[in-house]
């Protein structure tokens, strides 16, 4: 495959990861923090940005580790452990760097970083990347698109939930119940994009 066609494929993968194949609304990854941190827009924004950054970086690192370490050694089954260690190490490292060089960024982003290690969207994206056999350039598009898709979903959710705070909701439906139903409606809206990309 030439570089040009790879780049265009990366673009297609990126856009489909944002809209039609949204990692949260179509694959249910990262729902726990999505429900827990979507009460106000500010927190959702911080977490969303952190996810974009970590997700893109770790899928690339994991791609390199998988194709240059595990495949030559025939240790593919070992990928779960390796991926999770890389993710945890990367998150820890980022936290230290940010703390050292940008106290401002640390204040707005730092608190969310530890949460990210256990976000299934991060590990999920890496596993999908392996299963779908993406090349390195396509992986860039995939990681970025998945992160942006997750970011969009949590921001939209936080906006809706802020408005809902003043509504009267049946007691049993308050909290997670209503959030799940909103997520369902959002997923429905996002499937409306599926005509945008032919042949996905």
């Amino acid at each position: 495959m030439t570089i040009g066609s790879e780049i265009s494929q990366a673009l297609v993968v990126c856009i489909s990861a944002i809209f039609t194949q949204n990692i949260l609304l179509a694959y249910f990854l990262g729902i726990c923090p999505f429900l827990a941190v979507s009460r106000e827009i500010k927190a959702a924004f911080g977490l969303g940005l952190a996810v974009i950054f970590v997700l893109t970086a770790t899928t690339l690192l994991n791609w390199l580790a998988y194709h240059y370490v595990l495949v030559p050694l025939h240790l593919e089954f070992f990928r779960f452990i390796l991926f999770i260690i890389i993710i945890a190490a990367f998150v820890q490292f980022t936290e230290m760097v940010i703390e050292r060089y940008s106290p401002f960024l640390y204040q707005s982003l730092g608190v969310f970083l530890p949460l990210i290690t256990v976000n299934c969207a991060i590990l999920g994206a890496s596993l999908f990347m392996v299963i779908r056999d993406y090349t390195f350039i396509v992986t860039i598009g995939y990681g970025l698109g998945s992160g942006i898709g997750w970011f969009l979903a949590i921001i939209a959710m936080a906006g809706i939930r802020q408005k809902l705070a003043h509504e009267r909701i049946p007691r049993g439906l308050q909290g997670p119940g209503i959030a799940l139903i909103i997520a369902g409606l959002m997923a429905l809206a996002f499937t409306g994009f599926s005509g945008v990309l032919q042949g996905r």
Binding site: L25, R171, G177, L180, I181, A183, L188
Partner: peptide
């Protein structure tokens, strides 16, 4: 069968379960 269905069914079940508990 599509993804939104899972959210709806779980949302409604949560509603029923919590109402019973209350």
């Amino acid at each position: 069968v599509m993804p939104p269905g899972a959210f709806f069914v779980l949302g409604i079940l949560t509603w029923i379960f919590r109402t019973i508990q209350f």
